[in-house]
Amino acid sequence: MSRQPPKRLWKRVYTVVIGDNLGLHESLGFVGSFSANYPCRFCKAPKEIIRRQLTPDSALLRSKETFHEDLALDDSKGRYALKTFSGEVLLTQDQVSLLNPSSARELVNKLLMALFGRDMLISSSLTGQRCNLHKVIFASQIYYGLTTKEFRKLSFQFALQNSINCPKTWHENKTAGVEWCAKFLKRHPQLSIRTPEGTSLSRATSFNKANVDTFFDNLGAVLDKYKFAVNDIYNCDETGVTTVQQPRKIIAQKGVKQVGAVTSAERGTLVTVCFAVSASGNSIPPMLVFPRVNFREHFIANGPPGCCGSANPSGWMKEDDFLKFLKHFQEVTRCTKDRPVLLLLDNHESHVALSVINFCRDHGIVLVSFPPHCSHKLQSLDRSVFGPFKKFVNEASDG
């Protein structure tokens, strides 16, 4: 008999592969058949018999008919290699010294693949992890992301479909465990639990390659026809600004449930602001739409230089309000039929009214509309302007 391997070499192997690793053994289903008198859940002989063995003996292992597994520890050649009965070497003495938790999990996968012909641990199965990972990411990308409860149920169904052995509690609850789900997220840092933003079905389905290609084909045709300069191309859109600012983050005592900040009121009034920004970085003085029946000039006192205003009971942009903005836009840009400008905007009903189209045709404003429900992806103001603008408004209001 060769010398016994140093304890430090086998410590990690026993812990992860053969030793008392509750997570591994629970997944393999051996919880009820193990006690401290047995070196591992694969062995049906106690420690006293195992210690006297010089060579592997298949009679001392669980039978294939009951647990469908074969495992042997062969140290007769002094290499301290972990082998299967098929003769495949799974671990050598040199590899033991380099073993870490990550490589130990890979070893377990390799061992089970050699014994069973497939992975038995869904928690450490690379194939199962990648399959679940791709399903979760794809579901979130098509606006049908999975909750943790749905993901655990899907994982359990995946395990059943692929004949993967899983804990008894999974079968009782018909779902994967909460701890397994937490560890799955920890193993994949590219995943996190997020609160999704409500997205209508029309918006989710309208942004597709066909619609985007059609838009850029139309835009390209217009640019080729009119040869617009950079400062003659404008993006136009509206956004809502509340009269009560959102307080910024402050430093407060840790553990306090509620922290307040003084504002002008509990709830504010929404004012619509219409912007037009050119590709060169210049902007048209904005127009503000107030939720009032009649507009008064003092509404825009101390407002942005050159701005204009309008009012209606709802405070939203309507046909008459947008027509007033276009007149303001034409006065600032001085566009004519001989010197046209390009205006990119969405197809809101106030933007495509007949009076609006006639005014634009008579004053050299070329309109190009984004595809329906695609402005959240194609409108540059939504993508990069309105967010910083509202942040600066909050900071100015806090000041």
Rank of each mutant, 00 (worst) to 15 (best):
Q4E: 08
K7E: 13
W10C: 09
R12Y: 09
G19V: 14
D20Q: 07
N21Q: 13
E26Q: 06
E26H: 07
F34K: 11
C43Y: 05
P46N: 14
T55F: 15
K64Q: 08
H68L: 07
L71R: 07
L71N: 13
D74H: 02
D75I: 15
S76Y: 00
G78H: 08
R79L: 02
Y80C: 10
A81E: 11
L82K: 06
L91D: 02
L91V: 00
M113N: 11
I122P: 01
S125I: 08
Q129K: 10
R130Q: 07
C131A: 05
N132P: 00
L133Q: 07
F138L: 04
K149H: 10
E150F: 00
F151T: 00
K153F: 03
L154C: 08
L154S: 11
F156T: 00
F156L: 01
F156H: 01
Q157M: 03
F158Y: 15
F158A: 04
A159N: 02
P167Y: 02
P167V: 04
A176S: 04
G177D: 05
E179N: 04
W180K: 02
W180I: 05
F184M: 07
L185E: 05
H188L: 09
Q190Y: 04
G198A: 12
L201C: 06
L201P: 02
S202F: 15
R203L: 06
A204I: 03
T205F: 12
A210G: 11
D213W: 01
L223P: 02
D232F: 13
N235E: 04
D237L: 06
T239I: 12
Q245V: 00
Q245N: 12
P247M: 14
R248L: 15
R248Q: 15
R248G: 15
I250C: 13
I251N: 12
K254M: 10
V256D: 04
Q258N: 08
G260R: 09
G260T: 08
V262G: 00
R267N: 03
G268Y: 00
T269S: 14
V273D: 01
A276D: 04
A276I: 05
A276L: 07
A276E: 12
A279P: 00
N282R: 09
S283R: 14
S283A: 15
P285G: 14
P285D: 14
L288V: 05
P291G: 00
V293E: 15
F295L: 12
A301Q: 05
G303K: 01
C308T: 13
C308D: 06
S310W: 05
P313L: 07
S314K: 15
D321M: 10
L323G: 06
H328G: 09
F329R: 13
T333P: 07
C335Q: 09
T336W: 14
T336A: 10
L342V: 11
S350F: 07
H351C: 06
S355W: 11
G364A: 01
I365W: 09
V368G: 01
V368R: 05
V368W: 10
F370R: 08
P371H: 01
C374V: 03
S380V: 13
S380A: 12
S384I: 02
V385M: 13
K390L: 04
K390T: 11
F392G: 04
A396H: 10
D398Y: 07
